[in-house]
Simulated scan of single mutants.
Amino acid sequence: MPKAVVIFASKTGETAEIGNLIAAGLREAGCEVDTFPADSLPGDDQLQTYAAYVLGSSVYNEQMLPDMDEVLTRLSRLPVQGRIGAAFGSYEWNEEVPGQIHTSMERDCGLRMAAPALALKPPMLGHMEEQARKLGRTVGKMLPADQ
């Protein structure tokens, strides 16, 4: 069963909620999923074992939270090139941050991105929840069953 990780930096809980919905979509696609707040990651030995990485951050002062910036830096130093990635975020004013996470995952970490970044404006309602689950399913379908 392929293994994925969803990592989120959340200020008010909205981004954590999106991450949990993405994780549900990954499970629907047949993946084993771990979820972690960005400030509570496992060691590098475990972190580099996943077939897919889904990262998201709240936007604060028009930037990603510092914990997510640290996750991206750390992930860029691990041998994860060629694996699957996806980015997401919740924002009030600046919807560009999820795209910045996406770009860093692709450029700096060498991940193959499954879809454009998912940027959701709270509060999440109806179809937005389905968009998050759909992103999880999209990532899950890209993973070989034996990873």
Rank of each mutant, 00 (worst) to 15 (best):
L125E: 11
M124D: 03
M128I: 13
L26A: 01
V33P: 01
G30C: 06
P98M: 13
W93N: 12
L120K: 07
L135A: 08
P66T: 03
F36E: 06
A29S: 11
M68H: 10
P116L: 07
S40M: 13
D69E: 14
F88A: 08
S57V: 01
D45C: 04
E28R: 14
M128W: 09
L41D: 04
S58D: 09
A86C: 06
M128G: 10
L55F: 13
L41T: 03
A52S: 06
G43Q: 06
F36Q: 05
A119S: 13
R107F: 08
Q100N: 15
M124F: 10
E70V: 07
A117S: 04
R77L: 15
L26S: 04
A117T: 00
S57C: 06
A119N: 05
E32R: 10
D67I: 02
G82P: 00
R112G: 00
L75A: 11
K121C: 11
R107P: 02
G30L: 01
L111A: 02
P66R: 02
R27E: 15
P122S: 08
A29K: 09
P66Y: 04
V97I: 15
C109F: 01
A52I: 07
P116H: 10
G99A: 14
L135F: 08
A86V: 01
R83L: 05
M128F: 12
M128P: 09
G82M: 05
L118R: 02
D39E: 12
C31W: 02
G56S: 12
E96D: 15
M64Q: 15
E92R: 13
L65K: 07
I84Y: 00
L26C: 01
D34Q: 01
A117R: 00
I101R: 13
H127Q: 14
G30A: 06
Q48E: 13
L72S: 02
A38D: 01
A51I: 05
L135T: 02
A119C: 12
K121H: 14
A114I: 00
F36A: 07
V54F: 09
E106D: 14
E106H: 15
M128N: 11
D45R: 12
I101C: 13
R83H: 12
D69W: 09
R83N: 04
P98E: 10
A38T: 00
K121M: 13
D108Q: 09
Q63E: 15
L26H: 01
L47Y: 03
M113K: 03
G110V: 03
K121W: 03
G110Y: 04
M124I: 14
V59S: 08
Q81Y: 04
R74Y: 05
N61Y: 14
W93D: 12
R83K: 15
Y60R: 14
S57D: 02
I84N: 03
L118V: 06
L26W: 01
Q48H: 07
A115W: 08
Y53D: 07
Q100Y: 13
E92I: 04
G89Y: 12
M128T: 14
L26P: 01
R27W: 02
A51Y: 09
A86Q: 03
S76L: 08
Q100S: 14
D44E: 12
E28Q: 10
K134A: 14
L41H: 04
G82N: 08
M124K: 10
R112Q: 11
M124S: 10
S76M: 06
Q81I: 01
P42N: 05
R74M: 06
M68F: 11
E106I: 00
R133A: 07
